[in-house]
Design a protein around this nucleic acid. Structure first.
Lengths: 226, 226
DNA sequence: TTAAAATGTTAGACGTATCTAACAAATTAA
DNA sequence: TTAATTTGTTAGATACGTCTAACATTTTAA
């Protein structure tokens, strides 16, 4: 007799980490490639490959050989539930436990896997049911509903539109530094002046009326709305 | 090239769970047997057997085939560090997060494996550096030092001694109920009237001057001091 | 447009933690 | 004190998550 330890919808800690990364890396463009995931998760491509087959069987992702990986609604729900726990944990560590923002990420990475609705509901309550974390990232509610899910990658915004930078899809320090150098930050509005069909770069005008050119690679990782 | 992921002293989550159980189950008698551990950890005896070989290699336990398992000083240090985290977590969940005692054990079981000194030091600070948890169990300090480590099993106390019940080495509800039926509880003093050499049972007199007989099996699981 | 480079997949291996089946030792009871 | 029972060990299997080496496909660039 064989017993299934995990319930239908549940995932192992590892699976949780994968779906979370698939979700966030595919946010901007709608999909993510194997090598990108491998880099993010610090594993080799074959490992990602076999895990994707597994997640595809679970219907968390859509995955055809040599094609990009897409999250399904089911996978999205999983990811949002983990992201909710991560963001609540971070906020809790900062607001209640008075730890510094720079030191909470790794702890939250561990706390997000704690299995206990009571624990997270209580944190949510103590924090006053917050809707956003201090990076501007929305916190999904207990049902996985997320406020303002209409964010798009900067390179997908229309020419001449004025959009607000609401988040970045890459939290590596080097990327944040790069934005800083360009005089861009979360919360600020920019005007999309021109999108180069040629190389996908975007020319925009920032708050200080300065014209800036940003590469496709970078534009893809900046989330905007409106 | 092969990289070791774990540092010398560290253990996997599984190893941590094993050494914790070895430590607590061997508290009273100085050792614990395979089947007892298997029962506690919900695994089969061969699993315990192979894990004990592993922990013996790490010098956390002393283990010879068909003999009881003993914790080494090194293993004790590991165990105390996990127990510290568990007890701090429980107290935090109850005192700060206002969860009920009955619901915190499983959450603490998960939190105790969070790797972050900052996290635990902060909890310790918020709780005012507590020395005992509400079950009367001492909380080891950051160096693994434990206040009053002179507790002994009830059956090891001398005849005619008056001792205080400070903790139980078995937190299953059925055991606690059994003690309740006998009119014994943590914090209460009892007089050891007689110890039967024959079957190891102990006759004692409780607060209400009532004479009680408790079996060796039970006496072994009641920790007393003084 | 084809050759080189980048990216992805398959096959086969390994370590961890677990199991069952079969056997061995120690303890208990007749 | 020997036989039965309990307890422990060994051997071999399995699932998970990972790897490397070899091969396949796709993309890029000459």
């Amino acid at each position: 007799m064989l017993f299934l330890i995990e319930n239908e919808g549940m995932g192992s800690l590892t699976e949780e980490n994968y779906i979370k990364s698939v979700y966030s890396l595919s946010q901007a463009t709608g999909e993510v490639i194997v090598s990108e995931l491998a880099k993010k998760l610090q594993v080799k491509p074959p490992t990602v490959n076999s895990m994707m087959k597994k997640l595809a069987l679970k219907k968390w992702v859509v995955y055809a050989p040599y094609k990009g990986i897409k999250v399904t609604d089911k996978g999205k729900k999983e990811a949002l539930s983990i992201i909710r726990r991560h963001r609540l944990a971070e906020l809790f560590l900062v607001n209640v436990m008075k730890l510094g923002w720079e030191e909470v990420h790794d702890i939250a990475e561990q706390l997000e896997h704690v299995e206990s609705n009571r624990f997270y509901d209580r944190i949510d309550e103590m924090l006053g049911y917050p809707k956003f974390d201090p990076h501007g990232e929305p916190i999904p509610d207990a049902n996985g509903k997320i406020l303002n899910d209409k964010r798009i990658a900067l390179n997908q915004a229309k020419e001449n539109a004025t959009v607000k930078i609401v988040a970045v899809a890459d939290d590596k320090k080097s990327f944040l530094d790069h934005l800083n150098d360009k005089g861009l930050k979360i919360g600020e509005k920019v005007l999309i002046k021109r999108k180069e069909a040629y190389d996908g770069s975007v020319v925009l005008i920032n708050k200080a009326k300065v014209e800036l050119m940003i590469t496709h690679q970078v534009a893809e990782r900046i989330l905007v709305e409106e």
